[in-house]
């Protein structure tokens, strides 16, 4: 099994920003955007996310796999839950509203009567959802493609995680190719004995149980092998003193600017949404008039 990280150096603006500043901005964006259902604010956040995404210089060919997942999520949240069933709009969009699709709809030939009742307000809410979820997706989808996996340990340590937890992340990244190779070797060895993971016969329970001949040896070998790693770490006095990192991180003036901007964005959002009460959902008059 070929496992490779999605990251590659692109000489982009994103490559020059410190990963810690990027995490701070990403979380500040998430917290800020989720305070609003007001389309004007969401449009600002969405535009900001598009600009941020463009800093990554990623190509569609590279990210389309990730966008496929996001499109499934957006489809289920917006098309199915808000537009078709009205579920996603519950609690945010006030009940009632101007119906723009027949309340009752008869399916031709089958004569099924469906209560649909799509309102202008729900349609506007789905646009708001698209901007909010789309913006968040733009920010977080970019991370695997533009953040060097070698810097994760130092980054999380720099964000205040204890050494042991940050080092766990580093160690996990180091184990991935080894375990992927073990999985591949085990799969080949089991197949040589007649093991058929692709066998389509049997129900879901049998299919899951069929994973066991692959899962058990890989897991148990990894646990047995980890004793050697733990002993080697103990011999090198792991955890006895403050760690240093192979890839040290250094803030530049633009990182401080980004952190300051993130803090301003978060504080500004809190004031706008919770002090001035500007974050609520409302449908603009011009949009309502479109459906008169």
């Amino acid at each position: 099994m070929l496992i490779s990280w999605r990251y590659k150096y692109r000489n982009s603006i994103m490559d020059k920003i410190d990963p810690r500043a990027r995490w701070i901005f990403s979380f500040a964006f998430l917290l800020s955007a989720t305070m609003f259902w007001n389309a004007s604010f969401l449009f600002i956040f969405f535009t900001l996310a598009v600009i941020w995404y463009s800093f990554g210089k990623t190509k569609w060919k590279e990210t389309r796999h990730g966008w496929f997942l996001v499109s499934i999520m957006l489809f289920s949240m917006i098309v199915i839950n808000t537009i078709i069933t009205g579920g996603g709009a519950g609690g945010v969009v006030p009940p009632g509203g101007r119906v723009i699709w027949p309340q009752q709809f008869t399916v031709p030939l089958l004569n099924w009567e469906i209560n649909f009742g799509l309102t202008v307000e729900r349609l506007w809410f789905s646009l708001c959802q698209l901007m909010r979820l789309g913006g968040i997706s733009l920010i977080f989808l970019l991370i695997p493609y533009t953040m060097d996996s070698r810097a994760y340990g130092a980054t999380f340590h720099g964000l205040g995680m204890p050494d042991s937890v940050a080092y766990t992340m580093e160690l996990a990244i180091r184990f991935i190719p080894t375990l992927a190779r073990d999985l591949s070797v085990t799969l080949d060895a089991q197949k040589a004995r007649g093991y058929e993971i692709e066998k389509v016969k049997g129900g879901i329970f049998k299919k899951i149980a069929r994973i066991a001949p692959l899962l058990v040896p890989v897991t148990m070998n990894a646990i047995i092998g980890s004793e050697d790693v733990a002993n080697a770490m103990d011999l090198r006095c792991f955890g006895q003193a403050k760690r240093t990192w192979i890839y040290p991180l250094e803030y530049h003036w633009w990182d401080y600017f980004l952190i300051g901007f993130s803090a301003l964005m978060l504080v500004g959002s809190i004031i706008a949404a919770h002090v001035l009460n500007l974050g609520g959902f409302w449908t603009p008059e011009w949009f309502l008039n479109l459906f008169v």
């Binding site: 099994m1 496992i3 042991s164 080092y167 766990t168 992340m169 580093e170 160690l171 996990a172 990244i173 180091r174 184990f175 991935i176 080894t178 375990l179 992927a180 999985l183 899962l215 890989v218 897991t219 990894a222 646990i223 980890s226 004793e227 790693v229 733990a230 770490m233 103990d234 792991f238 955890g239």
Partner: peptide, 21 residues
């Protein structure tokens, strides 16, 4: 401790590899 750090890393890597697959 050290053993738990290694087991957590092994668990995370196993979950990632099998989850990826």
């Amino acid at each position: 401790g050290t053993r738990e750090v290694v087991f957590a890393a092994i668990g995370a890597a196993l979950y990632a590899v099998l989850g990826y697959a």
